[in-house]
Amino acid sequence: MTEYLVVSAFRAEAKYVPEGIPVLLTGIGKTAAAVAVSKALAERDTRDLVVLNVGTTGALRAGLTGLYLPSEVINHDLNAEAIRALGLDPRESLQVEGGDGTVLASGDVFVTDPVIRARLAERAHLVDMEAYGVVFACRQFGVPVRLVKHVSDSADEAAMDWPAQVDASARVLGEWLQAELT
């Protein structure tokens, strides 16, 4: 029987997770997410586990609203070209099973700058701060993972109003979980 672990950065994003489904809160950023997920996976039987990383996301392109299940996550604030020039694989892109074709850029930079937003929009549809760390950790443990993201802002100056938007996104994420898991 499949067991689920919902992973979110903040309690506010996981506020409407259906009762009985375990929730892991990681804190902000890829490193915090990777460490928290790794610790949780190391402490449990993962044979029938699926991790669901639910949370808010910024839209990098006009017209993107609603719920997305990204198929790829890229580590956008890694200097991948320099690492490749050294002859190493930066693993800046990870594929995610069961996605809808969208690409999520994940990094420790809170995107509000229009220049950074435009550069990221050339490679991705959405942006967040934890998904790459979650997916990377799950890969290390051989645990399936899905990304479930709701657009809360346009990754511009409006992103600073995230606290006022998070509850609406959390409701949609909770409804998706209710429909999918119960």
Rank of each mutant, 00 (worst) to 15 (best):
Asn53Ser: 15
Thr26Pro: 11
Glu43Gly: 10
Asn53Asp: 14
Leu78Lys: 09
Tyr16Ala: 10
Glu13His: 02
Ala158Asp: 15
Val135Thr: 10
Gly55Tyr: 03
Asp77Gln: 07
Glu122Phe: 06
Ser93Val: 13
Leu147Pro: 00
Glu43Leu: 11
Gln95Phe: 06
Ile28Gln: 12
Pro90Phe: 02
Arg171His: 08
Met129Pro: 02
Leu126Ala: 01
Gly58Ala: 04
Val109Tyr: 11
Asp100Cys: 05
Gly20Arg: 07
Thr46Asn: 10
Leu181Asn: 04
Asp128Arg: 06
Val166Ile: 13
Thr46His: 05
Val115Leu: 12
Gly174Glu: 06
Phe141Asn: 00
Arg91Ala: 12
Ala121Cys: 01
Val148Phe: 02
Ala62Tyr: 07
Asp48Ala: 13
Glu72Asn: 03
Leu25Ser: 11
Phe110Ser: 08
Ala159Ile: 02
Val96Leu: 06
Pro114Cys: 00
Leu5Arg: 02
Leu177Tyr: 01
Glu157Ser: 15
Ala40Val: 07
Glu130Ser: 04
Ala62Asn: 05
Val134Thr: 10
Val127Ser: 09
Lys30Met: 15
Pro22Thr: 01
Glu92Thr: 03
Ala82Asn: 14
Ser106Asp: 13
Asp161Gly: 01
Gly63Met: 03
Ser38Asp: 14
Gly55Pro: 08
Ala155Val: 01
Ala40Glu: 11
Leu94Met: 06
Glu130Leu: 06
Ala168Gln: 13
His125Trp: 03
Glu97Thr: 10
Gly55His: 03
Ile21Cys: 10
Phe141Gln: 05
Glu175Val: 09
Leu49Phe: 05
Leu60Asp: 07
Thr26His: 04
Glu130Ala: 01
Arg139Thr: 02
Pro22Leu: 11
Val134Asn: 09
Met1His: 09
Ala131Gln: 08
Pro70Arg: 05
Thr2Lys: 14
Gly99Cys: 08
Ile74Pro: 00
Ala14Leu: 06
Gly133Arg: 04
Leu126Cys: 01
Val35Asn: 11
Val54Met: 11
Arg91Ser: 09
Met160Pro: 00
Leu41Phe: 08
Gly66Glu: 08
Ser71Met: 08
Lys15Trp: 10
Ala124Met: 08
Pro70His: 07
Ile116Leu: 15
Leu120Tyr: 04
Trp162His: 10
Tyr68Asp: 06
Lys15Arg: 15
Val109His: 14
Lys30Gly: 09
Arg139Pro: 05
Trp176Ser: 02
Gln165Lys: 15
Val127Trp: 04
Arg91Met: 13
Val134Phe: 07
Val109Glu: 14
Gly58Lys: 09
Arg61His: 05
Asp100Asn: 12
Glu122Asn: 07
Leu52Pro: 03
Leu94Asn: 02
Thr182Pro: 06
Ala118Gly: 00
Val109Pro: 01
